[in-house]
């Protein structure tokens, strides 16, 4: 986009360096895509369009797609060198989010498996 050896100043999160018309189109495209993905999520959850056990996977994929749409079209995240700081911070945040959620689920599932030799027996003791 620019000559060799020249770099753009760091981008500001949430701001598109473009004409306002492009910004408007970006928001509108984002809205249309997000509405489509939202409707798809609700349809997948409520119907048997997907194979039963695959529905949670489908919902997670649709959710990630919609978060991506929000990041690109509403928060104007990009891949250029001027976006490096914002995207690196986002990547670090996502790493921590993944560690907290996946780590908690993993540890608690492990504990549950090792604790409850007979779930009904344990429940009985608790009462």
């Amino acid at each position: 986009m620019d000559g060799e050896g020249s770099v753009l100043e760091d981008r500001t999160p949430g701001v598109e360096h473009a004409e306002s018309r492009a910004d408007f189109l970006s928001y509108t495209a984002g809205l249309i895509l997000a509405v489509g993905l939202t409707i798809a999520s609700f349809v997948v959850a409520e119907t048997n369009l997907l194979w039963g056990p695959g529905i949670p996977v489908g919902l997670v994929v649709l959710a990630f797609a919609q978060i991506g749409v929000h990041l690109v079209f509403f928060l104007h995240m990009g891949t250029g060198p001027d976006h490096t700081n914002n995207v690196l911070a986002l990547a670090f945040g996502l790493l921590i989010v993944f560690l907290v959620i996946a780590g908690s689920c993993w540890i608690m599932a492990n504990l549950n498996t090792n604790m409850a030799t007979s779930p009904s027996h344990i429940m009985g003791v608790q009462r």
């Binding site: 050896g5 020249s6 770099v7 753009l8 100043e9 500001t12």
Partner: peptide, 25 residues
């Protein structure tokens, strides 16, 4: 910051040259 300002790397604000990045950034 609505206009892209392409500068040589050593002069880009916030990249070690040309002073700090704009307050907005």
């Amino acid at each position: 910051t609505t206009v892209p300002n392409a500068l040589p790397t050593e002069l880009v604000p916030g990249r070690g040259g040309g002073g700090p990045a704009s307050t907005r950034t």
